[in-house]
């Protein structure tokens, strides 16, 4: 078993104090191996951004340990953290975050100034990456002239310029159309498979699950493993919302049947008058694939 590129143990992050304290990340442990593509998904407000910020060495955890490429970040000073990010982590953001005054090639080369290694070599690598990502003809273009898909490919090239071992992508397909999103996913998949990098993707995009090696579910600060294609499509008997019974955490067991709810409010309404909703749910259409259980 190779050494994991990313390793987090019992990571905790709390915002606020006293009664107002929120445990955004609560005892999360995760390992990502070389060549592995891992997806973290979960509902909005589940702590995904906080977790990915910690795993990307942008935010220090209150407790726990994070090791990136063999370096424990909890003991590093700010300057060393910046250096670690420049050298070992490539970031891909949902909104691309290209530097608007720089050309495509200059954007790709920007992180090369921050890490050790010759700029001449970086220039060659930038040209290679632009070629690989089909952007050679746009090398001198400014970001405002690019399509969303092109921007995200530039961002990926920028993330790869320093040959980081860990790529962290936050909703990389969030602002892209279907075709561009698929293209970006395949590029990230190839980065993991062909170049041996660890790719961690935070997303709501279900297409990512098709190419990811592992899917992790984050809810209320807790992380759970979830296998691909392991869905249990059900409907909330109160509001009729389609839910994945596998990930749903609000449910009531009644007469040997488990009823799932989108919220506490729906559960309370169900409990106030269960017969009404049980009867109604029997006459409704299935949530997906005829699996209304």
């Amino acid at each position: 078993m190779p050494e994991p590129i990313l390793q987090a143990e019992n990571v905790v992050k709390v915002f606020g104090q006293g009664r107002a304290a929120v445990r955004a990340v609560d005892g999360v442990s995760i390992e990502v191996q070389p060549s592995e593509m891992v997806t973290i998904t979960g509902p909005s407000g589940s702590g995904k951004t906080t977790l990915v910020s910690i795993l990307g060495a942008l935010l220090r955890p209150d407790d726990g340990r994070v090791v990136i490429d063999g370096t424990d970040i909890s003991t590093l000073r700010e300057g060393a953290l910046s250096m670690l990010r420049a050298r070992s982590i490539g970031f891909v953001f949902q909104s691309f975050n290209l530097l608007e005054s720089l050309t495509v090639r200059e954007n790709v080369l920007f992180p090369a100034h921050l890490a050790p290694g010759g700029m001449n070599a970086a220039r060659g690598r930038a040209d290679e990456l632009l070629e690989t990502l089909g952007l050679s003809h746009r090398a001198s273009a400014l970001p405002r002239t690019l399509s969303g898909g092109e921007k995200q490919r530039v961002a990926i090239a920028r993330a790869l310029i320093n040959r980081p071992r860990l790529i962290i992508a936050d909703e990389p397909t969030g602002n892209l159309d279907s075709k561009s999103g698929q293209n970006v996913l395949m590029v990230l998949h190839d980065v993991a498979r062909d170049e041996g990098r660890a790719v961690l993707i935070v997303t709501h995009d279900r297409r990512v699950e098709d190419v990811a090696d592992r899917i992790l579910w984050l809810e209320d600060g807790h992380l759970r493993d979830r296998k691909q294609d392991e869905h249990e499509w059900v409907r909330d008997p109160v509001c009729n919302m389609a839910l994945d019974g596998w990930t749903s955490e609000i449910f009531v067991d009644r007469d040997g049947i488990r009823y799932h709810f989108c919220s506490q409010r729906c559960r309370e309404r169900f409990e106030a008058s269960p017969e009404t909703y049980v009867e109604a749910s029997r006459s409704r259409r299935p949530a997906r694939d005829g699996a209304d259980r």
Binding site: L58, R87, F91, F93
Partner: peptide, 10 residues
Amino acid sequence: AVMKALGVRD
């Protein structure tokens, strides 16, 4: 913010 995330120091 992006620069800081990429590793640019203050």
